[in-house]
């Protein structure tokens, strides 16, 4: 039998499916299902986590994410505009800030805000307790990333848009607010949504600030339950709850990108 190019392609393709299928079967057969389900899927342990897993832990995770996001977005917009400013010191400051905070681990910044600042200014404190510290601690880092995203978005709006607005007699500020920024935000919604997903996961660092029963978030909550019940099922529960938050956001990004592609 001669091996025509078409037949060869078909054999290679079928072989690809077969190898993948065998690998899956082998992995499933090798696993000790009894022990796995005992360790990770104990319904009684999972059940004991509710309703606090949702009413306290998930709620705080969402709250920390939103607070840090709003803080980061606001600061990020200011930094992006400074970065694009015609005033040189503004550009220096914004560039310095962005390079600094993009280069530091979120955990280190969180330590700084949680312990460094109170030590340095003993008579002052960040308002809002843990919530305030988390907002600033995670927001400072998020702002650096979002500033770069927003800058790219503003620069992606064609120069003619600003020129047309100025030609109609709008001031630079008015043209930015009414014409350029709305279009820039549309462009950056997908990357900003990715930013929220990253922030959601970064809230798991908040435990270093010493959270209490009412300010606890998902990862710390799962870790605590793991210690008291001596069983890792809580990690699976926490993981699933994170996915409940992040998967719809990923889906949203994909939808928005599809829509943007259609509008082009």
């Amino acid at each position: 039998m001669r091996l025509t190019p078409r037949r060869r392609r078909r054999i290679v393709r079928v072989a690809g499916y077969v190898v993948f299928g065998l690998a899956i079967v082998a992995a499933l057969a090798a696993a000790d299902w009894g022990r796995l389900s005992d360790a990770f899927f104990r319904l009684d342990v999972a059940g004991s986590m509710f309703p606090e897993a949702i009413t306290v832990a998930l709620r705080n995770t969402i709250l920390y994410t939103l607070l840090a996001f709003v803080f980061g977005l606001t600061l990020g917009l200011v930094l992006a505009l400074m970065r694009l400013s015609s005033i040189l010191p503004y550009r220096w400051f914004a560039t310095g800030y962005i390079e600094l905070f993009r280069g530091l681990p979120s955990l280190l910044v969180l330590f700084m805000v949680g312990y460094g600042v109170p030590l340095a200014f003993p008579d002052r404190e960040i308002p809002g307790g843990v919530y305030g510290s988390v907002t600033v601690g995670l927001g400072l880092t998020a702002a650096a990333y979002m500033a770069e995203t927003l800058r790219a978005g503003i620069q992606a709006v064609p120069k003619g848009q600003l020129e047309a607005a100025r030609t109609l007699g709008m001031s630079h500020t008015r043209a930015m607010v009414s014409i350029v920024l709305p279009q820039a935000f549309r462009i950056v919604i997908p990357p900003l949504t990715n930013e929220i997903i990253l922030l959601t996961k970064d809230t798991s660092l908040v435990y270093v600030l010493g959270v209490t029963a009412s300010t606890i978030e998902l990862t710390k909550f799962a870790g605590d339950t793991l210690n008291t019940r001596v069983n890792p099922t809580p990690l699976v529960v926490a993981g699933l709850l994170y996915l409940v938050l992040t998967l719809p956001l990923s889906q949203l990004v994909r939808g928005l990108e599809r829509r943007a592609a259609r509008e082009r």
């Binding site: 064609p158 003619g160 848009q161 020129e163 047309a164 607005a165 100025r166 030609t167 109609l168 007699g169 709008m170 001031s171 014409i179 709305p182 279009q183 549309r186």
Partner: peptide, 20 residues
């Protein structure tokens, strides 16, 4: 210049309509 520009209409090669 903003006041002067109000009295001068301009039409561009690339139209430059506001897409949003």
């Amino acid at each position: 210049i903003d006041a002067v520009r109000r009295g001068i209409g301009m039409v561009f090669q690339q139209f430059n309509l506001f897409g949003h």
